[in-house]
Nucleic acid binder design. Structure first.
Lengths: 193, 193
DNA sequence: CTTAACCCTTAAACTATGTTAAGGGTATTT
DNA sequence: AAATACCCTTAACATAGTTTAAGGGTTAAG
């Protein structure tokens, strides 16, 4: 069952006891999501913390010119949320969309607050989840800052070999911050070598 | 006294009770830092969470070409740390350097862990600190992704009016991800309008 | 089975930003 | 007070990445 996958994932941090597991299970809802279905749109409030049981999502922003920028891909065993919207309860500036048929578990804001208040271990565990997410984002910024598009592409292939097969190049280009045409040029260069 | 500034800053989150305040005060060390002094260098381990009482720091990365990239400026009432190094206990890839004479309070890793374990409220408060930091970083990424250098400069001036006066343009350019020469060109364009 | 939607590549012209080099101005340091 | 280090600007030239446009291939939808 999918809840077991969630409980297992907490073992990476502080494992949950019986009581905590039950309280968590009671507050989690399972949902099937179709390809291209949104679980958050710009302007909406992010009301859930979401755990991906299977499938894959992209989190992206659309700029004034209408160009999509992929900020993150989120696949199995990882968490999705838009923190700014979730905690400040203000409209999201990003979209979260399934790029494959997916299965998720979601926790509503008041339910998460219930868990925080009644089991401090969740404060701890969600602190660690956010810390990890922060480190990932910081690494991405460091990467972008100090590499060319080609280097970023190569290290994307290296770091996410599974994703690079599952995603079209347009999506990868958007993640790398370049146009698909330029990615094409880069790929040609790489083959030459 | 500077510890009061720290305690006051927790009132933005969950206020501390008497016992928590005392336990915190016992585990905090005050340090004066000179201009240009490092509190963290690449390759070192980040062993402290640091609260800035007064002054200002820059957190930056040096790339293969030897170019400095400012990731953050941190001023009064804010926290500095290199999360990846602090929690994973691996060498830092960034430098943290005072750009003004400063006064800080630092907490050692084991002391922070003591506070986490004995007062769950610290788990909560530091969860919120990291969440805020994450949101800031995400905003920066969104900005960088969808604006020109000129737009980024204008919104930097807007968002950090105090910093823009305290910092030389070379530092601002490094934060914006452009060369000082190009910033110069931008400033000229802006004056023209 | 056919059409439409999407995806990938190429190439030429273009633009934002970087590089190099030089001159003059202000702070720090000696 | 002189010397050094740092900072800001300008301008000519270089380059990484974008834009536009076009052709062909593949997948999804009617």
């Amino acid at each position: 069952m999918s809840i077991n996958k969630l409980i297992a994932s907490f073992n990476n941090y502080l494992p949950l006891n019986q009581q905590e597991q039950e309280d968590l299970a009671k507050r989690v809802t399972e949902r099937r999501i179709k390809r291209r279905q949104f679980i958050l749109q710009e302007g909406d409030l992010c009301n859930h913390y979401i755990f991906v049981v299977e499938g894959c999502f992209k989190l992206y922003h659309i700029d004034k010119k209408g160009i999509e920028h992929n900020l993150q891909f989120i696949a199995e065993n990882d968490w999705i949320m838009e923190l700014d919207s979730f905690y400040s309860e203000k409209p999201s500036r990003v979209y979260i969309e399934a790029i494959e048929p997916s299965l998720i578990l979601q926790i509503k804001r008041p339910d998460l607050y219930y868990l925080f208040t009644n089991h401090p271990k969740f404060d701890r565990n969600f602190r660690v989840i956010v810390e990890n997410r922060y480190v990932e984002l910081e690494n991405r910024v460091l990467q972008n800052i100090s590499s060319t598009a080609e280097e970023r592409y190569l290290s994307f292939l290296d770091q996410y070999p599974h994703l690079s097969l599952r995603l079209p190049n347009t999506q990868i280009a958007s993640y790398l911050g370049i146009t698909p045409e330029f990615l094409s040029k880069i790929r040609k260069e790489i083959v030459k070598k």
